[in-house]
């Protein structure tokens, strides 16, 4: 019975009555005429809100694996999306490799992942100058 309860508990989902697709859509002044199109074609961010859960993105870690390879991991809260890992190289993200301190690195992150929260990122493989800063870069 205990095992069953544990298994059942793991299957629990969280429900809510917060932001809905329609409210999220209307928050950017979307018209009724476009709502059905957005939902049926899963356009833009329409899939990010349902039963009240709003997706939020966070950069979890930035790992410098080599002189020409940086891995950025992102998490999505309140979403079906699993963690995502992006591989950055000098060719597609030179500003990351040009960064010489945490502030520059965070500015590069903010430019590339402008919707993501950048607090408390795990930085691995960079030098001592990349100590964690508490504040996000000011615009």
């Amino acid at each position: 019975m205990k095992i069953l309860i544990c298994i059942a508990a793991c299957l629990f989902s969280v429900a809510g009555y917060a932001q809905t697709k329609l409210i999220a859509f209307r928050s950017h002044s979307g018209s009724n005429a476009n709502f059905r199109t957005a939902v049926e074609k899963d356009l833009f961010d329409i899939g990010n809100s349902n039963f009240g859960i709003v997706e939020r993105e966070k950069v979890d870690s930035v790992i410098k694996e080599s002189k020409n390879r940086i891995i950025v991991s992102r998490k999505f809260y309140g979403s079906a999306k699993g963690p995502q890992r992006d591989t950055l190289t000098n060719a597609n993200a030179s500003e990351f490799f040009a960064a010489t301190n945490m502030q520059m690195l965070k500015e590069a992150l903010h430019k590339k992942y402008h919707r993501a929260m950048l607090d408390n990122i795990q930085i691995i493989g960079f030098g001592n100058k990349f100590k964690q800063a508490n504040s996000v870069p000011k615009k």
């Binding site: 299957l11 809510g16 039963f51 999505f76 809260y77 979403s79 079906a80 699993g82």
Partner: peptide, 16 residues
């Protein structure tokens, strides 16, 4: 209803 009303929470969508 607990099992099958599909909601997403913290990165997994197995229920859906």
């Amino acid at each position: 209803g607990f099992l099958f009303i599909p909601l997403t929470f913290l990165e997994f969508d197995f229920q859906y």
